[in-house]
Amino acid sequence: MLNIKEVFETTNMIEHENLDVRTVTMGISLFDCSATTVEETCSRIEAKIRRHAGKLAETADAIAAEFGIPIVNKRISITPISLIGASCCKTPDDYVTICKMLDRVAKELGCNFLGGFSAVVSKGITESDRLLIESIPEALAVTDNICASVNVGSTKTGINMDAVKLMGEIVKKTAVRTADRECIGCAKLVVLCNAPDDNPFMAGAFLGITQGDAVINVGVSGPGVVKAALDKCHGENFQVLCDTIKKTAFKITRVGQMVAQEAAARLVSSSASSTFPLPLPQPSVTASPTSSRRWASRSAGLPARLRLSPCSTTR
């Protein structure tokens, strides 16, 4: 049975040390949304996002209320759009049309960011990639909640200097296009090298092509908790310091894991998705059940796979 010290340690972390869940981000694969016309592609993308993330904000709010832990942001990441729009987009304006639709859907679903208006061009640029990149200044100027990213290089393939040159021009155009709003367009644009296979962190978020149909990612934030724990270590030796950091990081991460498991369990029952990996930052925890049934049977226990790795902190 819990004791009063443990209970008040947790409530103190939440109330006074700013422990919270920064974001619950749902990744949605759009590979089955490609069509021969922009209108049909938009229609399929909108339907799929609504089917999976229709209750994302509502579910996150309910979890926050039940567990007494704030969940600050609800977000969506999608398959890089240059892959999905390749079959129908013939001009940069076609991509702007898709971007506007994504912005409208994100706002209607209560998501403050949707990431994945992206192209991966680390080796070469397809016509579709080029059109998407050229659409970025206008797309980010006429939308509010969309994040764009372009991966221009990797250790394995080297740096695509054509893409670097192009992105240099695009960054400037994006800044100029939103100059009246403190160049906000550039705050929603990331140019990456070595983009990870899947990236849930805005503004460079996109759903990796190796991911399942829908995934839940949770970012936890507890620098105040770590600081408070370290404050209690003054004068202690290095071993005590290391143990304190490990114990504190464990507690913070477990909160994220719990929220991710709960969100996955609730959203999987209201959607057709079958796989819900749960990567968390610092360290990350991943659970990958292979089916919704298997997930349901594991939702109360340990995840299927536990992986500890260094990971970038969420914004």
Binding site: E6, G68, R254
Partner: peptide, 11 residues
């Protein structure tokens, strides 16, 4: 008022 799981998970 908080569901017990959050405390169990942390401790």
């Amino acid at each position: 008022c908080q569901r017990e799981e959050i405390f169990d998970m942390m401790h």
